[in-house]
Design a binder for these strands. Structure first.
Lengths: 217, 217
DNA sequence: AGAGAACTTGACTGATTGGTCAAGTCTGGT
DNA sequence: ACCAGACTTGACCAATCAGTCAAGTTCTCT
């Protein structure tokens, strides 16, 4: 058997791997555009180019499919946190994290919306993830920021509100992309606009913390 | 006939006014918690304490009811903009606007979520509002900020990204309230926490624009 | 008191949709 | 060539839900 190392799951055939990927991508888009209840298995099937019954061969239920979509974006965001740790001080760490989250808002718009939807509805399916993984992650980042403050490397603010501000601002560009594009003359933001928005967000936040804008991440 | 002046709508009986209010409030909460498709007329009826058939006596359809809920929060936000105009300079204007939007996130959590949901799904029902009312409002605020910049009253930034940052950050406290409360030990933010969060948001944004924090709004 | 309008409500209906199933087809190993 | 397991799929079913309706009850005005 030549599959990659695969801790929890049974080895997959090529066909299975490919079809699961097709279905997950279609599901992410459809859940993002219509919400959990608004999405139908038929829409997802059409988008994936497969008959509906096939979806139930690979995923036990609509809810199971949805859960995998939600977890996927969460772990992508978690990885973005690496920008934080490996950096010397707050200016580089925060601006790299912000830039990375902005990038993810551009490339993973659908996932971000699905997450927002799930949380807005009270996280019926990922409450345990919030209480464990997100809580741990947040606490560790708060400690890191408190360290910077204690070392006099940035203006003292409650790190919690700072983190929320970064999440809110960056994810807004994914979740409210439609509004932003409407206000942009019904056109997506250009490369230059994304870059300027990222620079502005970094500039205001770092400036507000008494830092100079870091390298253009 | 003693009804208030009422431009577009027919005069209403007391009973009608009261029941429409009951239903709209119930609908706002249910749409916020379940999304448009996830909400059922039966849930709204139960929350309003009325039989379902009664809802259809006052509102022609689920969609009509939803539209009124969405429009209500939009006009509440529009009014918050007054904080902007009537202020002397950027420090007072922006911090009053931010404080007002934070307050609305606390008092109108449901409405904010309904709006977020609607926009995330591509604004199928309020696209015209985005293109007209929101666009006009935004353009006028952008001009105001550009005026401040031209007068050297604040650091030059693209006002558009600044506005998005304010919207994102303040609305995050409504839309992601569940996540924030989970990270707060499953308890709502206290008065003191709301005040501190507001001060922190104002402080970072004003600081990032080269301003001193305004009066505690 | 009486008439007409406003309001109330339980029972019903047609359409939608998540999920099932049984009858297939395809593929790799021997 | 043949078999077993993996995969495919059209047809179907039971549950849910927006909206209707007709038979009421309660107001309001004279």
């Amino acid at each position: 058997m030549r599959s990659e190392l695969n801790i929890t799951e049974a080895p997959k055939t090529e066909i299975r791997a490919e079809n699961e990927r097709l279905i997950l991508n279609a599901a992410e888009a459809v859940f993002a555009e219509h919400g959990f209840r608004g999405a139908t298995m038929q829409m997802i099937a059409d988008r994936a180019g497969l008959p509906k019954a096939n979806l139930h061969y690979y995923f036990t239920s609509k809810e199971g499919l949805y859960r995998q979509v939600v977890e996927r974006i969460f772990f992508i965001w978690l990885e973005a946190a690496d920008a934080f740790e490996t950096s010397a001080g707050p200016a580089a760490g925060l601006s790299r994290y912000i830039a990375r989250k902005m990038e993810l808002s551009r490339t993973h718009r659908h996932g971000s919306k699905v997450w927002a939807n799930e949380v807005m509805q009270g996280a019926p399916l990922v409450q345990d993830t919030l209480e464990t993984a997100l809580r741990e992650w947040t606490d560790s980042r708060i400690s890191a920021i408190e360290g910077w403050i204690a070392a006099g490397q940035m203006r003292p603010v409650n790190p919690r509100w700072l983190l929320y501000m970064i999440w809110a601002t960056t994810q807004h560009y994914a979740d409210f992309a439609h509004q932003i594009e409407t206000l942009n003359g019904a056109r997506p933001l250009s490369d230059a606009q994304w870059a300027e928005a990222t620079r502005t967000v970094c500039g205001i936040i770092l400036g507000g913390l008494g830092l100079h804008a870091g390298p253009a991440a």
